[in-house]
Design a protein around this nucleic acid. Structure first.
Lengths: 212, 212
DNA sequence: ATGATTGGATAGCAGTACTATCCAAGTCAA
DNA sequence: TTGACTTGGATAGTACTGCTATCCAATCAT
């Protein structure tokens, strides 16, 4: 198939596909003459993945490139891809090393993870993400202690185990890697959306004027 | 206090504060002469809120403006602010009305909400958010049925009720509104961060090479 | 042979969130 | 009083991201 057909079938403009090729998100088609290249089903599949990461996961193009590089590196295993994706997901919080409030928040996060006995890379960006949120909450006058996190921890444990359990052991490598990406990026969106819906429901029941 | 002190205490450059004033996120200081204006504790508090929404919630400036307009409108109640915030959180999915796959995904979402008996605005953006994620999952070959959502629904219900329950009835209006914002924006980040940490832990236990 | 299409390169554009400069009016230390 | 400095306010410029638009020569279909 040529690029125009790839464009039609993927729903992306030709120019955008060319852009993704330039950016290293999509391999070039196999050249068949100077003005002809052939694209296959793998290209279409890749474009679907890119769209999911861009439009649903809202990942920047540069992050998707890093993920795809890991995806194509045969030496990268499931858990490695996990780390790459988590790191690419960002945001990358610039930790102000000197702020004592920051250090306290970060220490709380580390203590929580230790207490739970979790195996989490000390450099995992989610640690800073959580610490920054603590800092903001406290700055706004909403103190957070470890006890307040109980419901979140419980929910996170349940979901994390469920999701990891869904990744079957026997599947071929490429499929397993795709599954891992889907788990980290798309299931996070599922969780966010359902959380918002549940919040709205709870709020409507408690504060809503009339049952509508 | 003058703008330079406000800058120091908030940690934001003077130019950025001026920008926020221009954009309607922060009220002007009370004028005290042609080249002098006085800022108070309310300004500092507001800047803290803005920083939390920008840096932690990653909300665009335009969305923060809409939230703050609702915050300052005395006719807006708790549940109204909830809707405004949810809408401002975005993303605003442009629904392709003709795509049958889209319609199926959206119908699934609506059916789920009906079945759960949730009170959710039919125009709530989280419905489209969830539908779009379904669509992407299915497009990548990961079929999602309502049964697969059980763990997410359970987690969302638990968190939604916990969070709404934390908003005490008797608190003064401004405090209650702040609490609502914090619940919808910052607690979502707490959930995301803990989910990622729990995923990494589960992945390390299942796929990690050595217990590190 | 001729008009359309292609791959590939380069340049341009729109949106966002700042950041820098400028200016006249006012303040304050000497 | 004078002269360096600060302030509020306005305007213009910048950096980054994610596309789009245009161009060109080669080449394919008819």
């Amino acid at each position: 198939m040529r690029i125009s057909e790839l464009s039609e079938r993927s729903g992306l403009p030709v120019q955008t596909i060319k852009y993704y090729i330039r950016e290293g998100l999509l391999p070039r088609g196999t050249a068949a003459g100077a003005t002809r290249a052939e694209y296959g089903a793998a290209h279409l599949e890749r474009l679907r993945l890119i769209r999911a990461l861009r439009e649903v996961g809202d990942l920047p193009v540069a992050a998707i490139r890093r993920i795809i590089e890991a995806l194509e590196d045969p030496s990268v295993g499931l858990h490695d891809l996990f780390g790459t994706t988590q790191y690419a997901l960002g945001p990358h919080v610039a930790a102000p090393g000197d702020d004592p409030d920051w250090r306290a928040a970060r220490a709380d996060v580390d203590a929580l993870i230790t207490e739970l006995g979790w195996r989490v890379d000390p450099k995992a960006p989610a640690r800073d993400l959580l610490a920054r949120t603590f800092l903001a909450l406290r700055g706004l006058g909403f103190p957070v202690g470890l006890a307040d996190l109980r419901p979140y921890v419980d929910a996170a444990v349940a979901l994390g185990e469920h999701e990891t359990g869904m990744l079957a052991e026997g599947t071929p490598r490429e499929q397993a890697l795709h599954g891992m990406l889907v788990t980290t990026v798309l299931h996070e969106q599922v969780m966010i959306a359902l959380h918002r819906l549940a919040q709205e429901n709870a709020s409507a029941r408690r504060f809503g004027s009339s049952p509508g």
